[in-house]
Amino acid sequence: MNIELKTVPQHQVAYIYQIGSYDKIPECLGALIEWIAQKGLQVKDPVYGLYYNSPLEVAPEELEWEVGAGFEGELDTEISEDEDGREVQLQTISEHQVVSTVFKGPYGEASSVYVDLYQYTAQNDLKIVGPVKEIYLNNPQDPSESLTEVQFPVI
């Protein structure tokens, strides 16, 4: 496994924040991509999931997460709603450093590399300063061919 420290440039994202089961992720991602298209914007980066807590720590109905995507274009509002009333928010993400690796396999198993990233940060005197981000790099027919970049923001 290749783990690297890299700089993520400043970028803007649209995202939907949720509390509840991860089962809602595919629906929310679809709704977000549709919302971006309806606004006449172009998805710039692969879609992502940001996970604020863990199913090992809380019940499924207490999971906090968001799904989002970078985009190109301008909007005059920071918050609006999709057709189902979900809040779509906009944010500019500042340039920052992350510890990163790419996992190959079903999306639901990407957390298997978290321990390796934790160890890397400890061995390199880095401090994790935010939630884990999973960037979904492709959407193959065969789940074993899925590629997920896992990032921990660090200082």
Rank of each mutant, 00 (worst) to 15 (best):
E4F: 02
L5G: 09
P9R: 03
H11P: 09
A14I: 03
A14L: 15
I16F: 10
Y17C: 03
Y17L: 13
Y17E: 13
Q18S: 15
I19Q: 15
G20F: 13
S21T: 15
S21Q: 13
Y22W: 14
Y22D: 14
K24L: 15
I25R: 12
P26S: 12
C28H: 13
L29N: 09
L29M: 15
L32W: 09
E34I: 07
W35T: 14
W35E: 09
Q38G: 00
Q38D: 15
K39P: 03
K39Y: 11
K39Q: 15
G40P: 12
G40N: 10
G40H: 08
G40Y: 09
Q42D: 11
K44C: 04
D45Y: 08
D45W: 06
V47H: 09
Y48V: 01
Y48E: 00
L50G: 03
Y51Q: 07
Y51W: 11
S54L: 11
P55A: 14
L56A: 13
L56M: 13
E57R: 12
A59S: 14
E62I: 10
L63S: 10
L63F: 13
L63M: 15
E64H: 09
W65A: 06
W65Y: 15
E66F: 06
A69D: 04
G70V: 06
G70C: 04
F71W: 01
E74P: 03
E74L: 06
L75M: 07
D76S: 13
E78T: 07
E78C: 02
I79D: 05
S80P: 02
E81I: 08
D82I: 03
E83V: 02
G85D: 06
R86L: 09
R86V: 05
V88G: 05
Q89P: 00
L90N: 00
Q91F: 01
Q91W: 04
S94M: 00
V98A: 01
S100K: 00
T101G: 02
V102W: 03
K104G: 01
G105S: 03
P106N: 08
Y107Q: 07
E109S: 12
E109I: 03
V113M: 05
V115S: 12
V115C: 04
L117E: 06
Y118W: 10
Y120G: 06
Y120E: 05
Y120D: 05
T121I: 04
A122D: 14
A122L: 12
N124Y: 10
L126Q: 10
L126D: 10
I128A: 01
I128E: 01
I128F: 03
V129C: 05
K133W: 02
K133C: 04
E134P: 03
P140E: 07
Q141G: 14
D142P: 04
S144C: 06
S144F: 05
S144T: 15
E145K: 15
S146I: 08
T148H: 08
V150I: 14
I155V: 14
I155G: 00
